[in-house]
Design a protein around this nucleic acid. Structure first.
Lengths: 204, 204
DNA sequence: GAAGATACCGACCAAACGGTATATTGTCAA
DNA sequence: TTGACAATATACCGTTTGGTCGGTATCTTC
């Protein structure tokens, strides 16, 4: 056979390339319609190499959730909320940042987490669990911040931090979803600004 | 060829059967992964009949959006909001109804509109437009009710009806999405109850 | 430096897909 | 009654899909 292999081996790089290409392919087409051929074309990795690193397409998808989408969100929210002493300000600024950074690509493809939830959670229990782990962590980080805000007398004491955190996360996903379908950065921003109003109303 | 046709012809019924089966197949698998073979198997309609009524799979999907999903939502929200003199009460009760009617199947498959938005809106402009038409109508109905509430002195005058309507719709979709992934009726209900709190805060 | 493990290659495969072609039958107007 | 057309049936097609397999090149270890 005619063998033209990569000059030097680099399994880690190969794996990362695959994860990265798979992430983008899934973001654009969804998981089920994601094409392995297309992923391979975008990485110049061979099919053999792909199946060396990942047992099935499903495994690749699960790895994307765990190793790409999860850390992405974790970093953004965890470090951001840790920077503020007041959770109301922290949340408000996070949304403000989302409003400021809103651009065509966010509006076009929406939230990778939400996309996968809607598509895959009823179809594959492992996907659902992988996504749920991220979701729970997200809600937990927000709830924890709110709880500390209550102790510090910054957040209304009559509110349930867990319920509010859940609702805030839901609202964000909803705003992204609507903006995505409207293909309108403005609509997305208007929607998030209402969420800011709600967040402000949580202050004492 | 061996012809075993339906005893009596009924094109309208055939078309409706197809729309109904397609709706359920799409709800369960998404549009791209929806299988025509499976739809045919669930209707005992032949492939020839299907392609007589719908030019392509895409046309079938668009018809489901326009003729099944759209009217479903229209009926629920339009008639419901018309029953109340006070939009705050109307919206509150609509959410209360959603909370009361929450069951496994809602939680399992989520909102058909939201599912299609996340999957198809970046991939097919016609889908996006069909979905957007429903979305805009939904937002408009809510906004109109709020506007009338403002005139009647029931809704805070400093609020923008359009923005709030957009946000409410987004929040609902978000709540369904989270409940769907958590596979938890309780989480879904907790989320919606926070939305009720927000809605109440709109009163004068 | 030989051996064994790891990484990678690309041709091939069966199955499922959406869609087409052609044949047949029910319906209804003339 | 018949002729035309709408409605339905099924065999078939090309393409794409995820996945396999035998083989090769590189790296590590002793």
């Amino acid at each position: 056979m005619n063998m033209i292999q990569r000059k030097t081996r680099n399994p880690e790089q190969t794996r990362n390339d695959l994860l990265d290409a798979a992430y983008h392919e899934i973001l654009e087409s969804g998981f089920q319609a994601a094409s392995l051929e297309r992923i391979l074309a975008n990485t110049s990795v061979s099919k053999g190499a792909l199946y060396h690193h990942f047992g099935t397409k499903r495994d690749l998808g699960l790895a994307v959730i765990e190793e790409v989408i999860g850390p992405q969100l974790e970093e953004r929210w965890f470090t951001m909320l840790a920077q503020h002493d007041n959770p109301i300000n922290g949340l408000y600024n996070l949304i403000a940042e989302k409003i400021a950074q809103a651009d065509e690509s966010v509006i076009r493809y929406g939230c990778p987490l939400n996309n996968l939830i809607q598509e895959m959670s009823p179809l594959d229990e492992s996907f659902r669990q992988g996504l749920q782990k991220i979701l729970e962590r997200w809600v937990e980080v927000v709830a924890q911040a709110l709880k500390e805000g209550q102790s510090a007398g910054q957040v209304r004491p009559d509110a349930s931090p867990e319920d509010i955190a859940l609702y805030i996360v839901a609202s964000i996903e909803g705003c992204v979803g609507l903006g995505k379908n409207a293909q309108s950065v403005a609509a997305y921003q208007r929607c998030l600004r209402q969420l800011q109003v709600y967040i402000k109303s949580l202050a004492v």
